[in-house]
């Protein structure tokens, strides 16, 4: 009898040890497969559930998932960014990235802020990295987003529905190359394909799109979509908003920068 109790206690302990929690806003709920639904959160994380609550809305939740991303707990939370500054939205999508040399690229990469916290969110790291380079050295970058389809997430029980990193335009001879600066996952700047290969286990290329809606209502035949946007965007919701409103961010929003520092850096 003691052995049975010990077995269940160790099982409970293991489950607890492997559970992960995070705070984020619910962005979308979509059917993954059969009766399984996929919840997508603002921090890029996902959760699978077979019984989505019909009352779930675009609120910030405290979410707990197991190692296969199955939803364990969902509770309303008050932790959210300050209101966005409406004055930073403009009708022009103009954002010309600075052309940098290979040497400058290496210097920029090596001075990226390495004081990020455990469980920091990619959108917050990317936002701070882009902001610091713009603020300190007047270098304009872009952001590259990889958006994973529900079929890919379900197949690999992948943790995220999107990932983002700063993107720089590098002059290499007569060519201009786009290099991804994802300091947390790559030891040096890499091409977009090398970058996505780190996350797309099938190694399939991601379909490029300029419209978030193409990803949002995709037929699940791709593993991932790729979007490139200005450094002022913070997460894919900005691109959705831009597409719907026709208004673009042309400045960093102080509230978002403050939130990004607080969430992602020491």
């Amino acid at each position: 009898m003691q052995k049975i109790i010990l077995f269940f206690l160790s099982l409970l302990l293991t489950t607890t040890l492997m559970a992960e929690s995070f705070h984020a806003q619910l962005i979308a709920t979509e059917r993954a497969q059969g009766n399984t639904f996929l919840l997508k959160f603002s921090n890029g994380r996902v959760a699978f559930t077979t019984s989505p609550d019909a009352n779930l809305g675009p609120t910030t939740y405290e979410v707990s998932v197991d190692e296969d991303q199955n939803l364990l707990q969902l509770q309303v939370s008050d932790d959210r960014p300050e209101a966005e500054e409406e004055k930073n939205y403009f009708l022009s999508p103009e954002n010309t990235p600075t052309l940098i040399t290979e040497e400058e690229a290496r210097k920029i990469f090596n001075r990226l802020n390495s004081k990020y916290k455990r469980s920091s969110e990619c959108s917050n790291r990317a936002h701070v990295w882009a902001w610091e380079e713009f603020k300190n050295n007047k270098i304009t970058s872009e952001k590259v987003y990889v958006l994973f389809t529900a079929s890919y997430i379900n197949r690999y029980r992948f943790k995220w529905w999107f990932h983002v990193a700063p993107l720089y335009s590098v002059k290499k001879g007569d060519q201009i190359e786009k290099w991804v600066f994802d300091f947390m996952f790559n030891p040096q700047p890499v091409s977009i394909k090398q970058w996505t290969d780190g996350f797309v286990f099938s190694k399939r290329s991601c379909r490029y799109t300029e419209k978030f809606s193409e990803y949002d209502v995709n037929p699940q035949t791709e593993d991932c979509y790729l979007m490139i946007d200005s450094m002022f965007t913070w997460n894919p919701m900005d691109m959705k908003h831009q597409e719907l409103s026709g208004r673009y961010k042309t400045q960093f929003a102080r509230g978002e920068i403050n939130f990004a520092y607080k969430q992602a850096f020491q």
Binding site: F158, F183, M184, G198, F199
Partner: peptide
Amino acid sequence: VILRPLNNHLAGWI
């Protein structure tokens, strides 16, 4: 030390 992924296609995660 920044510990970056190796063999992440096997780890099932990054």
